[in-house]
Amino acid sequence: MKLGFDAKRVFHNTTGLGNYSRDTLRILAAQFPHHKYFLYNPKPGSVNRLVLTSNMVLCMPKAKVWQKLSSLWRQKAIVKDLMADKIEIYHGLTNELPIGIEKTNIKSVVTIHDLIFVRYPQLYSYIDAKIHFKKFKRAAQVADKIIAISEQTKKDIVSFLDVEASKIEVIYQGCHAAFKEVYNKDQKQEVAVKYSLPSKYLLNVGTIQERKNLLTIVKAIKDTQHHLVVVGKETTYIEKVKAFIRDNNMKQRVHFLRGVAMDELAMIYQMADIFIYPSIFEGFGIPIVEAMYSKTPVISSKGSCFSEAGGAESIYVEPHDEIALKKAILNIEENLELQEKMTLKGFEYVQRFNDDVIGNQILKLYKSL
């Protein structure tokens, strides 16, 4: 098959949507090398995290006018290139499909990650929320198939976008291979020294924004001696967190890391005592999966999709309940039997997110078209 992909975020995004796009392409190209994968990128990017294999073709706007108007090319004019390249199935990896694809013979798939802007519009500008809703709804309605990355997202698509459930397949997100590697003591020590990591620490990974709820972790450890390591892109929300840290003399115990490579992040996970993810709402929550591959106990939030990612043996608390979070941290620390059970059962559970499982499910969906 000739398979086309919206690859904008492969080359322009270092966080969730970029990681999903790269992992999907990596899994498919490695597992099914006899197909051809056309990666449509509107303009040269600065993110170089995908190794292009011989069965991948990088495609950019052919006409000079669309090289200058690359956003318009991605939204509509790309359809002519898809037809010229004889693409059989086009996959919008990040919530969007080009206008007019429904008028061609090209089958289309769109992955919808979440509808947080509908559930929590206060976290977005009015204009952004309106634009997102219009793009997502149009893509969902014209697509031949929709991939939802969790059962929670599927329910939201049905409820908010008025789409039949039968059109939606739940296919979970893959996980980067770095988190499945076993690193030796010297490698870990090198990372620990490079980032001045404490000997024992709690870990939080994810964009530092209000929805991710980092402040609740900081409040939970205020009257303890715990160290917290935080890895994530900063937003203005960090000022609220840092103000609390300053006011409570916690600067020496909360460590913010930048510029962390993927293999370094995997080692930071593996050296952590507990991974904490108190997000209010997510489409899936890939950091939970990364932690379980790393054999690190997980505490996350009740509700949303978190139990889908974390399974039955992770611990869940109300997202803003710092007292319950503190109790959960101490309970895990003081109970070696519980630690062992959480890491063992978590690692067993997370095998459902292995590359072969994800790849087979996606290819099955393509073949159904």
Rank of each mutant, 00 (worst) to 15 (best):
V230Y: 05
E239T: 11
S196W: 03
H227R: 00
G259E: 10
V254L: 09
K194R: 12
T216A: 11
A192R: 13
T236K: 10
G259M: 08
M250P: 14
L214V: 00
H255Y: 10
K200H: 15
G206F: 12
K212N: 09
K212H: 06
E239Q: 11
K240R: 12
T207H: 03
G259A: 07
V191I: 14
V230E: 05
E210V: 00
V230M: 07
G206S: 13
S199M: 03
E239F: 03
F256S: 13
H226Q: 09
K219Q: 15
D223T: 09
Q252L: 08
N249H: 15
R253D: 07
V260K: 08
L197F: 05
L215W: 04
Q209M: 13
L203S: 10
H227E: 07
L197I: 07
K200C: 10
A243Y: 06
D223M: 06
E210Q: 15
P198Q: 12
T235R: 06
G206Q: 13
N248L: 05
P198C: 12
P198R: 10
Y237G: 02
M250A: 09
I221T: 02
L202Q: 09
S196N: 12
Y201Q: 07
K251W: 04
V205R: 04
L265Q: 10
K251M: 11
P198G: 11
N213C: 08
L197G: 10
L215V: 09
R258Q: 14
V231N: 09
M250V: 08
L214E: 07
V205I: 09
